[in-house]
Design a protein around this nucleic acid. Structure first.
Length: 159
DNA sequence: GCCAACGTTGGC
DNA sequence: GCCAACGTTGGC
């Protein structure tokens, strides 16, 4: 039983179009530096899980498309790189602190689900995005996912 | 282990 | 750019 996740990103830094443009549409999801998010990513994410991409800190915050998890969790290499913004001197290869997974682009939504709209829909009243908006690795319920797909209609499923 | 200070996030 | 919410740090 695969899970559904929502990952937040600032489109100025790394957008869903940037993911799409990566070789094979695949990129490491690095830079998670929050323990609750880390724990979920490291302990609960599995290859094959579904990912919703959310754009934050931008003019139109929204769920903009889908990706899928294509690796098991592994240590985020940027924590060991002194020249990287993600460097953490407390991490060691024996005892890594931060983890990531690789994700692959699946689709962009024809109609992104704007945060504004999402807040207006009763189906999402108890969604983590509404209750715990700062958490960067969020769980999405199957019902919520179905409603999102209903509202957004992936571009690549036209008959 | 408490808690004040401080830093970050992110919608608006 | 403001500010509320909230996570992290570090002195005690």
């Amino acid at each position: 039983m695969s899970a559904i996740w929502l990952l937040k990103t600032e489109p100025d830094t790394f957008s869903i179009d940037d993911l799409r443009a990566c070789p094979d549409g695949t990129s490491g999801w690095d830079g998670v530096r929050n323990y609750q998010a880390r724990n979920r990513l490291r302990d609960e994410m599995c290859k094959g899980d579904t990912v919703l991409i959310y754009h934050s800190s931008c003019p139109q915050p929204a769920i903009v498309g889908e990706a899928c998890v294509v690796s098991d969790p592994y240590p985020d290499p940027s924590q060991f790189d002194a020249d990287s913004a993600g460097f953490d001197s407390r991490s060691s290869h024996d005892n890594p602190r931060w983890y990531q997974v690789d994700i692959r682009y699946v689709c962009s939504y024809a109609q992104p689900l704007l945060l504004k709209k999402l807040r207006q829909d009763e189906e999402f009243t108890h969604m983590e995005l509404v209750l715990h908006p700062r958490l960067s690795v969020q769980k999405v319920a199957e019902r919520e996912f179905q409603r999102i797909q209903q509202l957004c209609q992936p571009e690549d499923t036209s008959p």
